[in-house]
Simulated scan of single mutants.
Amino acid sequence: MKTVTMADVANQANVSKSTVSQYLNKRYDYMGEKTKIRIAQAIEELGYQPNIVARSLKQKSTKTIGVIVANILHTFSTEVSRAIEDACNMEDFHTIICNADDDPAKEKKYIEMLRAKQVDGLIIFPTGNNRELYRKMLDEKYPLVFMDRPVAEIPVSSVMLNNEKASGLAVNHLINNGHRRLAMITASTTENVSPRVERMEGFKKALHSHKLPVSEDYMKSVEPDQVNGTLEDMWKLDEPPEAILAGNDLVLKEILQFVKQKDLNIPRDLSIIGIDDVPYASFYNPPLTTIAQPTFQMGTTAAQVLLNKINKKQPADNLPDDRFEPELKIRESVADKGGVQS
């Protein structure tokens, strides 16, 4: 079959090729409504498909960005990615979302693949271990934004949560409700992933501010499949924790499985707060108190910063590091042990 060209559409609609081009690029300022209708009908009747590659080369833009998330299983990742997609769609940009599985090698492969596809910019939840690749993109003034975590000595615009405050809100709420033996479990900090490190640091600072001891037995950073064993060790202590802060949604899931396995009652036997307002938190039995991140606002901001860089509205080396504020969602998973209500 003969390929339908823009010239064929122009002939069918009785307009010039430049008018068809303006229509395809949504430049309607001086185009009459009847002309638009004729072009639309010609495109449909002929089955015309624009040559995206040719248009991209001509415009020096693919109208596409890449998003590389650290772990797509996190509620945070999926909600932020949705917000990025919504914001880009409003500007007629497409998104390609890739999952790095917290693996630097996989992240590197996706960066190289997306750049080979000539995406106009990248939003990365960085593993942190591809510093030379990040620096190369900076040197080339390639539009780049980091989400959720910065990378030391890599001056890239980063959109993040105030992680220390997130832990502080949880600790204050637990202490104000009479708890004193507080534990925290985060995912592994072996790779120094900043949100995990900052949340643990915020936990320690909050305990210090209330003049409570910081016990290494109550603070653990482990892989999700090690959470159960970590909790088993805590429950063998002479004084097991009476409240636990889960550093993220995957850790929270493991803690809830342990609670079910041990037939513990929330909050009578154990009070729980999770960082990340997971979808099931409000209807779990009992409803779970959480620390919520403004995921959609964060994703929208990351997209806007990147699109501004792509459209040259913001210099590539401008660094608006946005720290977003967490919110305590009080529900029923924290027992009142006679403290002052927060």
Rank of each mutant, 00 (worst) to 15 (best):
A206W: 04
I154M: 02
A302L: 08
K204A: 08
N11R: 12
Q341Y: 13
P213C: 13
E112Y: 11
L252D: 01
P241C: 08
A83H: 00
N318L: 15
K26H: 14
N285K: 13
G339F: 14
T127N: 05
K63I: 06
Y28M: 05
R38E: 08
D238H: 14
E332N: 15
P224A: 02
D92N: 13
Q293I: 07
S157M: 04
K337I: 04
E327R: 09
K220G: 03
I39C: 02
G128P: 09
Y218K: 06
M184K: 11
E112D: 15
T35M: 12
Y284K: 07
A7C: 07
L133E: 07
Q293L: 05
A42M: 04
Q12S: 12
V193I: 15
Q314F: 10
K337N: 09
K60L: 15
N176G: 15
K337W: 12
L245I: 15
P50T: 03
R331W: 04
P326G: 05
R196S: 08
K309N: 01
P224G: 01
V67A: 01
T75S: 09
D101H: 10
V251E: 01
A206Q: 06
I266T: 03
L306H: 09
E140K: 11
L288C: 06
K58C: 11
G168K: 15
N172V: 06
K58M: 12
I65T: 02
V156F: 00
T186H: 07
L252T: 00
E107S: 04
A70Y: 05
K205C: 14
T78C: 09
L24M: 12
A170Y: 02
I43L: 03
S271P: 09
K260C: 09
L237C: 00
P195F: 00
F146C: 05
D276K: 03
K26A: 09
R115I: 13
I65E: 03
E239Q: 09
P240W: 00
A281V: 06
A83D: 03
P195S: 03
I52A: 13
E107F: 11
L270K: 03
L270N: 08
H173K: 01
F125A: 00
S77F: 02
T190F: 14
N11G: 09
F146K: 02
F125N: 04
N14M: 08
S158D: 02
D317R: 10
N228V: 12
Y110C: 08
F283Y: 15
E164I: 14
K262I: 02
L306E: 04
Y280N: 02
V15I: 08
I37L: 13
I72K: 00
D103T: 04
T295C: 11
M31Q: 03
K106Y: 08
L122W: 11
P213N: 15
M1I: 14
P294H: 07
R27I: 10
K17Y: 08
D249C: 09
Q118C: 08
V214K: 08
S158M: 03
K220A: 11
E153K: 08
T35H: 08
K63Q: 14
T19L: 01
